[in-house]
Design a protein around this nucleic acid. Structure first.
Lengths: 252, 252
DNA sequence: GATAAATGGCCTGGACACAAGACCTTTTCT
DNA sequence: AGAAAAGGTCTTGTGTCCAGGCCATTTATC
């Protein structure tokens, strides 16, 4: 009886991520979230090792992967380190294609799930938000409206959505949202409008405002449907970019 | 840099589960889901090793943990194996207490999140369900209504909720739901009414019916709020059991 | 009752990932 | 020029896991 019948329960092979993989994911998330903006430098290898409680060799492994897919550029010498690439669309298109193509179906599902989850978070936020949460959202909203550069815009966008999720008052939900963000964005900016499509930026701004107001008013239904639509938009934009990157070998 | 909240070091220590831990979690999920009912035997060590693509030593490590918390009982000899304990409330109360007490706050958050996610799934299901999905839900509903034993009831309950989630049509959501189930139930039955509280069973039956009808009618709002309330009920029941187990050293 | 079969229990050896730390090379600041 | 700060490269030790064999126990079967 080597293979034979499958007993009840679809128990499939076990997959456990390596520490290096986990570290790489975390760094990609941090970059995608805007903790480290294009042009900025990540903490040094030794510092990261201490922060993540991991050996330097593992950090190097993880950073090596980020470099391999073109997310960061590594410089040596006294001011050296891993610098976030200014634009992933440049030298990275082939790498993106190579990494993303096999994951395409999974990404579609993840985009969908992310929209559902963020909609859910907005609903819960509308029912549970405190004044502090409203303040945080308001500040992020202002920052988004007043953003001069694409980087500022991305940072503010991330902060706004994080504030919405936080307003739901469930730390596990925070973790879930971050996890989905990690898995959906493989290190490139999360809200990639504004550059390619200034009109999408204005639309996003309007939706952010509407979402804020709905949450402020405690209108869960409205907040949820706005959020869900909003993230559908995001997914559409990213899908278009990826498809372009898949079809055009030269990238932008 | 408008968020100011986080110094660029929001990166915490990395934690990666061992293979053995992952296996133990999977087995607990399978048991909690009802794939292996009380009194039944899990597949043999060699067979599990092949199924999960893992060494036998690792399987033994995982099963050893299940035994340590009293979820299974191990017998030797030709008909030996890991047998699911008949009732976790008996010899297991002290173990449950020991395992659960430190995780209490996290569990509260997980219960809450699970309610939100299942509500979200029901909403999506109402908008996306196909006739096949409706059939599956209907069959599980009948099975639940006609359940004679507690075990049957639990199996049918799991099947119903799984069918709802499946009706949302997103495999990633399936995985999320299962993951939450694992983390919320540490191996003991998920829907522990019917024994302690026959009235809760009737209420659950009614809610299942209402949820089915809402999804059938495509009424997302109604389906979502019913599901959310339903899982709040589940959480309340479990909370009561756990609190009892925490306060009464003798268990039931 | 004797035997074979199926199971859990246990042991060894090796592969691999990771941690810890020392040391080298490159670049830049003083 | 020299110190400082970073990445690049080694070595060594350790813990986890895999592969496989053998033993001990119980039970089905003859």
């Amino acid at each position: 009886m080597l293979d034979g019948d499958r007993p009840p329960g679809a128990l499939g092979p076990v997959r456990v991520p390596s520490v290096a993989t986990e570290v790489a994911d975390r760094l990609m998330t941090a970059i995608a979230i805007g903790d480290y903006l294009p042009g900025e430098r990540l903490p040094g290898e030794r510092e990261l090792a201490a922060l993540l409680d991991v050996s330097r060799a593992t950090i190097r492994e993880a950073i090596g992967r980020l470099q391999a897919v073109g997310i960061v550029e590594i410089r040596r010498g006294r001011t050296g380190g891993a610098y976030v690439r200014t634009s992933w669309t440049e030298a990275t298109a082939p790498a993106v294609r190579r990494v993303l193509a096999p994951r395409w179906p999974e990404l579609e599902q993840l985009f969908d799930l992310r929209g559902l989850v963020e909609g859910m978070a907005a609903r819960a936020a509308a029912q549970r938000r405190t004044d502090e949460h409203l303040d945080a959202m308001g500040r992020a909203l202002d920052a988004y409206a007043g953003a001069a550069t694409l980087a500022e815009e991305q940072t503010a966008d991330g902060a706004f959505h994080a504030a919405v999720v936080a307003a739901a008052g469930n730390p596990q939900l925070d973790a879930l949202s971050r996890d989905l963000l990690t898995r959906v964005s493989l290190g490139f900016p999360v809200e990639p409008y504004g550059e390619d499509d200034p009109q999408a930026y204005r639309q996003a701004l309007g939706e952010h405002r509407a979402m804020y107001e709905a949450i402020r008013d405690g209108d869960a239904e409205r907040a949820g449907s706005i959020a869900e639509r909003h993230f559908t938009l995001t997914a559409d934009v990213m899908r278009a970019m990826l498809e372009r990157s898949l079809s055009d070998p030269r990238g932008t």
